[in-house]
């Protein structure tokens, strides 16, 4: 079934709910669905996390190999983020090479981590100009019920914070924890029925006019942004989205700290 085939009357119903400041699952506009984070469930990865945000279920695995640095950054580790939107996660994900959706997801999550300097890449150099640690952040969606960006972003930072550089396996020294000094959290704000919501479920995400992902660091500074959707956002809406994102990312950071 085409993702756009949400019955027209259902769109109407959601609008009516929104006008009464309600959502289909009884949440408030700023409320996240129940969140659970599992740390390092997969021994084959150097770090991993499985996040469930409502019914959205996503794994991030961290793998590291030794490789060449970029020529313009000879003493810096290399970071690559890839997303797999597997067809088993949703009837709306097709088989085949990554589509725009999965590429955007990977790049947005990557941007927040990279621009916040969350990983001390300069500590991942082995031999300057020759050998550095190459880090892969692999996002693997298992079940899709909206707001994959936020779920993947949370999983990524949880996996990174609990990852180990297995230097001993590669005979370049002792193992050490991956040096992570920031926790950028992407929070996507969705414009639905003219209102701004956090953590949209699948239906809300599908009917949303626009969305704005804001990745903030621990201080509340902005590290990455991405607007999606075809409708416009007023400057005032963007400012309000910032407030929502700040609150949201702090809440999530608190939850993660408690694990």
């Amino acid at each position: 079934m085409d993702r756009e085939l949400i019955p027209d009357i259902e769109r109407g119903y959601i609008s009516r709910l929104i006008r009464e400041r309600k959502r289909t699952d009884g949440r408030g506009f700023e409320e996240f669905r129940p969140l659970s984070v599992e740390i390092n469930p997969y021994g084959s990865a150097e770090g991993s996390a499985r996040v469930k945000l409502g019914n959205t279920d996503v794994i991030v695995g961290i793998k590291m190999i030794i490789g060449e640095p970029y020529s313009d950054r000879p003493a810096s580790g290399v970071l690559t983020t890839v997303a797999e939107l597997r067809p088993g996660a949703s009837e709306f994900f097709e088989q085949g090479p990554p589509k725009a959706e999965s590429i955007e997801l990977a790049r947005v999550v990557d941007r927040g981590i990279r621009e916040s300097g969350a990983i001390e890449l300069d500590k991942l150099c082995i031999v300057e100009g020759e050998k550095v640690w190459v880090l892969f952040i692999d996002i693997h969606a298992l079940d899709f019920d909206g707001n994959l960006i936020d779920a993947a972003g949370i999983a990524a930072i949880a996996a990174l914070k609990n990852a180990t550089v297995r230097a001993s396996d590669h005979e370049v020294g002792d193992d050490f924890p991956l040096p992570v000094v920031e926790s950028p959290i992407p929070v996507t704000v969705y414009k639905v029925g003219g209102e701004l919501l956090l953590d949209a479920n699948l239906v809300e995400e599908t009917v949303a006019e626009a969305r704005l992902t804001i990745t903030m660091d621990e201080k509340g500074d902005i590290r990455a942004m991405q607007k999606g959707g075809t409708a416009n956002l007023t400057v005032e809406e963007v400012q309000r989205a910032m407030d929502l994102a700040q609150k949201g990312s702090n809440n999530i950071r608190d939850l993660l700290a408690m694990d």
Binding site: T24, G26, R27, E31, G54, D145, N201
Partner: peptide, 12 residues
């Protein structure tokens, strides 16, 4: 009664 966690997870 308030929506429970499982209702918020919206069982599909």
């Amino acid at each position: 009664p308030d929506f429970t966690d499982s209702e918020k997870r919206q069982y599909r």
